[in-house]
Simulated scan of single mutants.
Amino acid sequence: MSSDPTQISARIAAPVEFRAGDGPLLTIPEGHCKVIVEGDSAVLTWTEADQPMSAAIPKIEFDRFIASGAIILGTS
Rank of each mutant, 00 (worst) to 15 (best):
A20P: 11
M53D: 00
I71F: 06
F18A: 10
D40Q: 14
R64Y: 10
G39E: 15
V37I: 14
A14T: 04
R19S: 09
T6Y: 03
R19K: 14
A55S: 07
T6I: 11
I12W: 02
V43T: 15
E61S: 14
E30T: 01
S3G: 08
D40P: 12
L44V: 15
I57M: 14
D40H: 13
E48T: 12
I66N: 09
M1W: 02
K59A: 13
F65I: 05
S68Q: 04
E38G: 13
P52V: 03
D63M: 13
V43N: 13
M53F: 02
A49F: 11
S41D: 14
I72W: 06
P52G: 04
S76P: 02
L26M: 13
E48G: 08
D50P: 07
S3W: 00
K59W: 12
V43D: 11
S2M: 05
G31Q: 03
I71Y: 05
A70D: 01
D4E: 04
T6V: 12
S2A: 04
E48C: 08
T75A: 13
M53W: 03
E30G: 02
I36T: 06
A42M: 12
E61L: 08
T45S: 04
S76D: 07
A67D: 09
A56H: 07
S68H: 03
